[in-house]
């Protein structure tokens, strides 16, 4: 890769989805996530002259984003006074003493599963960076947003068979990349 430099006009196209996924798995709220991302971009603009080019653009933005997320947690906590810890004690008055209620549900997602899924999502998005922009855009629309084939064809002005070739290529390179980086 050539020397690292910042291109703020391309930030949204390149990193918005990545940052959004990073944030939403941590704050669980679309609006809050969007606010945090826009704050991150603005903070990035303001401190552009401090960017030394040692890290890649993405790493640099992520480091800002992490701070913003921590700030968000702090703000939330000070608003409430302090962190709240909720615990559920079994209440024998209200519920029967069924075994099912006392045994952990194995089908429940554990924290480890969630963490793994979180990392998986980011790994997939990183791999998507290697696709060219048009491929990535079409693939995202089809796979993540579930847009109709026809609608995508109209928007990009391509034929359906063309679309399938593009998606097929995107999937193939994605699979290769994931094989290398994930398994």
């Amino acid at each position: 890769m050539e020397e690292n430099s910042l291109h703020p006009d391309k930030w949204v196209d390149r990193y918005a989805d990545y940052l959004f996924n990073y944030t939403i798995t941590r704050v669980n709220d679309r609006e809050v996530a969007n606010d945090i991302i826009s704050e991150t971009f603005l903070a990035g603009l303001k401190s552009m002259k401090n960017y030394k080019g040692e890290a890649s653009e993405r790493t640099w933005l992520i480091s800002i984003l992490k701070r913003k997320i921590i700030d968000h947690y702090r703000k939330n906590n000070s608003a409430k006074g302090q962190a709240e810890v909720k615990m559920n004690f079994p209440d024998s008055d209200n519920e029967g003493d069924w075994l099912e209620e006392k045994v952990a549900d194995l089908t429940d997602m554990t924290a480890e599963d969630q963490m793994e899924n979180r990392e998986l999502g980011l790994a997939i998005l990183e791999c998507m960076d290697q696709l060219n922009e048009k491929q990535a855009a079409i693939f995202k629309m089809k796979t993540i947003d579930g847009v109709d084939t026809e609608a995508i064809c109209n928007e990009f002005n391509i034929s359906p068979s063309n679309l399938w070739v593009i998606i097929h290529r995107a999937r193939t390179s994605l699979a290769k990349c994931l094989e290398k980086n994930w398994f």
């Binding site: 949204v12 999502g121 998005l125 995202k140 947003d145």
Partner: peptide, 22 residues
Amino acid sequence: LLKKADLKTCSSQEKEHLKNKI
């Protein structure tokens, strides 16, 4: 895997908004 990762994207509206802001 794609399903499991449960990826989400910003909508194009939100992106446009962000772009203008930047």
